[in-house]
Write a protein that binds this DNA or RNA. Sequence first.
RNA 1: GCCGGGUUGGCCGAGUGGUUUAGGCAGCGGGCUGCAGACCCGUGGACGGGGGUUCGAAUCCCCCACCCGGCUCCA
Length: 473
Amino acid sequence: MTAFADLRVYNTLTGRVEKFVPLYGKRVFMFVCGPTVYDYSHIGHGRVFTFFDTVARYLRWAGYSLFYLVNITDVDDKIINRAKEEGMHPLKLARKYESFYYEDMESLNVTSVNLYARASDYLPEIWDQIRVLLEKGHAYETETGVYFDITTFPDYGKLSKQKIEELRVHRIEPDPTKRNPGDFALWRKRPKDEFGWESPWGYGRPGWHIEDTAITIKHFGKQYDIHGGAIELAFPHHEAEIAQAESYTGVKPFVKYWIHIGLLTIKGEKMSKSLGNIIRIRDVVQEYGPEPVRLLLISSFYRSPMDFRWELLDQARSSYQRIKTAYDNLYDLEVNSEVGNAEVELLNKVKDLRDRFFRSLADNFNTPEALANLYELIRLTNAYVSEVGEISEQGKGILLSTFNEMLSVLGIRVERAVDSVMLKSLVQLLLEVRSQLRQRRMYELSDEIRGRLRDLGIELQDTPQGTKWRIIR
RNA sequence: GCCGGGUUGGCCGAGUGGUUUAGGCAGCGGGCUGCAGACCCGUGGACGGGGGUUCGAAUCCCCCACCCGGCUCCA
């Protein structure tokens, strides 16, 4: 496994593709901005978390010991407003959508996160950071809250390459008590009848940016390796995190590699409530199954914008079917005691493709190129299965484990759904009956069986090795 | 206005100077098949526009056009 040695990643902070060298040897710390749990997750969330799940799987495959942390924003104006509408306590509403979020992630096979951290569990850390920032003169208190003074942090804008002076007129009327319009809230004082906490600076709620540094500094310390999120968060959210953390700890850089995902749009427009064009993860999963959705999300390069259309899911479903069929064909391949020349040749090519697959991932997580290598492997395997039709037990083991290795790093599941003994026996019975009908050339009846089974989602394929069947939905 | 990303065949999507402009979906021809499907083999078809550098440009430089995002809610 040499492929991981030269992992290269694009770092927003430097604007370059860089060699990945973790801060603490083989231990890697990665944090990704998680959801604000006030509604169902949409496919834009799906893209981000599917991608970083793949990153996590790759890092672990490459031998790193990864601590992957995701925050859950459960304190937020949108949650409070939504809770008011539904007549529910804000935290209760947050827990509800948090659990839906986990369901969606599980359906997409996003299973690599070590810890989900809720903002509401980190009030002591938040207060400690605010206190220190005040002591160091980076923050100030007014009658509306505690704010970070961006003029005390000359690096503000270094991530998003923005100059403070050039930031245009703001969309929201700035709080008149702030020193600079760009200063952001660390603590927001709120009326007592609203949801909040009693703090050293009065009753209220934390600012959005401070929760992430509270969580990450608590778990990772003053510096860590990878911070991920959608590109839209780079400014001001991630910029604010840098300002807070580096001012608080005095250590730079807070994060070594910043990785940002391109936005997913619908018909060229950003998904938003007001446009009413939000597509939920659970809806696409319901209609297409989870694997085609995941396959679609990783089939374009993560930094490119991606425009979603339903037609693309149709294409992804066909592609997934190709992967699955190849896996099934290989699984069913007859075992032979001898190792032929064709097998030796095949296994050499497979080894080469495996190397290329992981090299593609090491090249800034080029998942489309990795998939191309996987498809090449599929084509080779299919050709072998149809031309040779048998393989040594050892060869089969190598092929299957190579498939499993690649698919598991990509997070694509191909488990055969058919586990019911009853179902298997019933289909087997029908196949035998149909086989006898075909021998007697009673094709009308045999085709009716095939057609009716297809309607039920079971597809038959007559091959020289007999009739095979698979579940197609 | 400033900053960032993008524009590759019918659709999607890799590719940063020449060996092949990958791969998937869809199409076409053939094989296999009772037929179909699956699979295999073959096949056509693209680098937003204009300049420039070079023996050679999708790739480097300049200009232009268009699309998307950020500029304190947003994954």
